[in-house]
Design a protein around this nucleic acid. Structure first.
Length: 152
DNA sequence: GCCAACGTTGGC
DNA sequence: GCCAACGTTGGC
């Protein structure tokens, strides 16, 4: 089973929001690389590391799973939405969304500082300069290290 | 608020 | 198809 890291700004939507809502449509993805991963590589039940970005304490905040696979992102057709895309058509939707389901909140934030310090995460995409993808794959080894750090 | 990185856009 | 300008991301 694959594992993914999803970034989210906790001021907008954090792990506590997901814990409350249980299932959330992950809309608003407007990057082709990410769209292609959603379309081609994401499967039902895939694990998600839910990551808090652009906040006081950036880091991994909990786990979720894919509970609904790729479907057209409704916001691309909504002129009132900031994610509206007039060049997309219903016959051939440009943007896709998945549904994610809450699994658990970590006992504590596994901070970006810790993730950067661990030698086993040297190749972790989050730790690479210039990484700006809001979703990317996590290897099983990387996933295990993050879960181990949570208990450290 | 700054800045590096990099994706996107659009003129040619 | 090149590339400069611009916008966005996200850590610090």
């Amino acid at each position: 089973m694959a594992c993914w890291l999803f970034k989210s700004e906790p001021d907008t939507y954090g792990i506590d929001d997901l814990a409350r809502d249980r299932i959330e449509p992950w809309t608003g993805i407007r990057n082709y690389q990410v769209r292609n991963m959603i379309r081609d590589d994401m499967n039902l039940g895939d694990e998600i590391i839910f990551y808090h970005s652009s906040c006081k304490e950036p880091g991994a905040a909990g786990m979720a799973r894919i509970s609904g696979i790729a479907r057209p992102d409704p916001l691309q057709f909504d002129p009132a939405s900031a994610y509206y895309d007039g060049k997309s058509s219903k016959d051939d939707p440009r943007w896709l969304a998945v549904d994610i389901e809450f699994v658990r909140k970590f006992d504590r934030i596994v901070t970006l500082v810790e993730l950067k310090q661990h030698p086993g995460l040297a190749d972790f995409k989050l730790n690479r300069r210039g990484n700006r993808l809001s979703i990317f794959p996590v290897s099983s080894g990387q996933r295990d290290i993050i879960l181990m750090l949570e208990r450290a």
